[in-house]
Structure formats: C-alpha cells, structure tokens
Amino acid sequence: MLRSSHALAIAIAVALPSPGFAASPQSFKGEYTVSFFGLSIARSTFSSHYENGAYAIEGSVSAAGLAKLFDDTRGTISSKGTISGKKMVPQAFRADYTSGKKASVVDIRFTNGAVTSTQVIPAPGKRDPNNWVPLGASDLASVLDPMAATVVHADSLDQVCGRTVKFYDGEMRADLTLTYDSKGAISVPGYKGDTVTCRMGFEPVAGYRKGRKALNYLKNRSRMMVTFAPLGQTGVYAPIHATVGTQIGTLTISAGRFEAIQ
C-alpha cells in the first residue's frame, strides 16, 4: 500500500489527524471514509492523546465496499513523539497491514526529528541506479511521518495554509506544499463551524523511480485539496475533508466524526 500507491498513502495520511498541543491532557477521535466515484473503498478510525509534551496516535484502515473484492487491505498505524515549540518531533511510526494474504510492515524510528532507521517488510527489490533517485542523509533530517505530517499548529484559520511539509513514508521523501484556496463551514458529528481549504502541491525529493507516471501525475496534474478544522481549543488544525486527483479518478476523504474529548 505505502510502497505501491503513493496517492493512497497520501490520502490515508490526510485522513488520520494528529493530536493537539493543549496545556492539559486532551484526547481526540475521528472516523473517515475514502470514496471513489461516490463508492466507499476504505474506512479509517483514529484515537490520539496528548499529555506532558508527548503525543500518541493509534489508527486503523480497511478496505470497504467493492474494493474488498479486488484488494482486501486492512491494517493498523501508530505514531508517537514529542512537541518542541510548535513543531511535531516524531520518535516512531509503524504501519502493519495485510493485502489478501500478504503481510507488510513499515517501521520508522527518529532521533531529534531525523530518521535513524527504516524497516520495510517485505524488503524492496533491487533498484536500477540509472532510474532511481536515492535518499541521502540530508533528505531524512527534520521530516515528519505520514501521520504527524497532517497536523498544522496555527494561531488562526488564516495562518493554516502557506507552508511546506517534509513528508517521509518509509521509502519516498516528498515536499507537500499548502497554499490558501478558500474559507467555508462544515457540520459533522462532533464539529460544526468554520474551515479553511488549502491546495496541496506534491514534489518528490528522493526515494522514487524517475519517470514514474503516477508520481508525475501527482506532481504536475493532480488537484489535491485539503479542508482543515480546529481540534477543540488546542490551536491545532486537522483535515476534515480532502480530495486527491489520480490518473483514474478522484479519491475523496470525508470525516464522519471529528471531535475533541476533554
């Protein structure tokens, strides 16, 4: 999943908000649906907790609807780390998932925000050095895992967009840029209020094959929009709706529940 479809990896990352930065302990929960041409193809849930400068997130994702007939993927995702100022500093990320009878693992460890180890099972095949953009040490400094990359700490909705996120999924390093698009409002169980929508740009940096059509499409042609809403009174904004354009159509991620629990 993370290795074979970066569009889906980004979509799932967008659908799993990170925790807040409240002075007192806070917990959050959410439920999301990923759909394609109006048909549900995946569901995800998450729970997260922040306390004493540390965060922990547990999430799950599973294929749904007709997608289960073709690729019965399901798995769990976890992320933990600390907060430094207004920045997430990840310590560990792990995704365990199965697709049919095939089991896969992505395990990333960090020290001071830099990747110190990555384990991918099954291991990637041999790379053609003429077509592969390798990862360097500088590529893995001050990066965020797929879950920590979704959170935005800002003083207001006006300041959510206008930033670049350094994203690492265990194989590929990419920059995700957020630029302002519009403001709006939304109502879902657990939240009713204002939102801001950012257009998300995608720029592969390293850890990918040159000329790959799916990545070129995400970079040059895909329209990716992410709508953020606040998590309680924490000053944290997380995705509540998103669309990701792919070569075969648009993936839509929608929150069915989005709430902070005091």
Rank of each mutant, 00 (worst) to 15 (best):
residue 2 L to R: 11
residue 3 R to I: 15
residue 4 S to V: 10
residue 5 S to H: 06
residue 8 L to T: 13
residue 9 A to N: 08
residue 9 A to L: 06
residue 10 I to H: 01
residue 11 A to E: 10
residue 12 I to E: 05
residue 14 V to R: 00
residue 21 F to V: 02
residue 22 A to P: 10
residue 23 A to L: 11
residue 24 S to I: 07
residue 25 P to H: 05
residue 27 S to D: 11
residue 29 K to R: 14
residue 30 G to N: 06
residue 31 E to Q: 13
residue 33 T to I: 14
residue 37 F to M: 09
residue 37 F to R: 07
residue 40 S to K: 14
residue 41 I to D: 04
residue 47 S to A: 10
residue 51 E to M: 12
residue 51 E to A: 15
residue 52 N to K: 15
residue 53 G to P: 08
residue 54 A to I: 01
residue 56 A to W: 03
residue 59 G to W: 04
residue 60 S to H: 02
residue 60 S to G: 14
residue 69 L to W: 08
residue 74 R to H: 11
residue 76 T to D: 07
residue 77 I to E: 02
residue 79 S to R: 04
residue 85 G to S: 08
residue 90 P to E: 04
residue 93 F to G: 05
residue 94 R to F: 01
residue 100 G to P: 03
residue 101 K to P: 05
residue 102 K to T: 13
residue 104 S to F: 05
residue 104 S to P: 09
residue 104 S to T: 11
residue 106 V to W: 01
residue 106 V to P: 02
residue 108 I to R: 01
residue 108 I to T: 06
residue 109 R to E: 10
residue 112 N to G: 10
residue 120 V to N: 08
residue 121 I to V: 14
residue 121 I to M: 05
residue 124 P to K: 11
residue 127 R to V: 13
residue 128 D to S: 11
residue 129 P to Y: 10
residue 139 D to Y: 08
residue 139 D to F: 05
residue 139 D to Q: 06
residue 146 P to C: 10
residue 147 M to K: 01
residue 147 M to F: 05
residue 150 T to P: 01
residue 151 V to D: 01
residue 152 V to D: 03
residue 152 V to M: 09
residue 153 H to L: 09
residue 153 H to V: 12
residue 154 A to S: 12
residue 156 S to P: 04
residue 158 D to T: 13
residue 158 D to R: 15
residue 159 Q to K: 15
residue 166 K to W: 04
residue 167 F to N: 05
residue 168 Y to E: 01
residue 172 M to K: 12
residue 175 D to I: 03
residue 176 L to W: 13
residue 176 L to M: 15
residue 176 L to C: 14
residue 177 T to P: 00
residue 177 T to D: 09
residue 178 L to G: 11
residue 180 Y to V: 09
residue 182 S to H: 07
residue 183 K to P: 06
residue 183 K to S: 11
residue 184 G to V: 07
residue 186 I to H: 05
residue 186 I to S: 10
residue 190 G to M: 01
residue 190 G to R: 00
residue 191 Y to D: 02
residue 192 K to N: 13
residue 193 G to Y: 01
residue 195 T to L: 05
residue 196 V to W: 06
residue 196 V to I: 15
residue 196 V to R: 09
residue 199 R to G: 09
residue 200 M to Q: 13
residue 203 E to Q: 12
residue 205 V to A: 05
residue 205 V to Y: 04
residue 206 A to T: 06
residue 208 Y to G: 03
residue 210 K to Q: 12
residue 211 G to W: 03
residue 211 G to Q: 01
residue 212 R to I: 08
residue 212 R to S: 12
residue 212 R to D: 12
residue 216 N to M: 14
residue 221 R to L: 03
residue 221 R to K: 15
residue 221 R to A: 14
residue 222 S to F: 07
residue 222 S to H: 09
residue 225 M to H: 08
residue 225 M to S: 08
residue 226 V to E: 04
residue 227 T to P: 07
residue 228 F to N: 04
residue 230 P to N: 01
residue 230 P to T: 02
residue 231 L to F: 12
residue 232 G to N: 08
residue 236 V to W: 06
residue 236 V to F: 09
residue 236 V to K: 07
residue 237 Y to P: 03
residue 243 T to N: 06
residue 244 V to K: 01
residue 247 Q to M: 15
residue 248 I to S: 13
residue 250 T to Y: 06
residue 250 T to F: 03
residue 254 S to N: 12
residue 260 A to G: 07
residue 261 I to H: 01
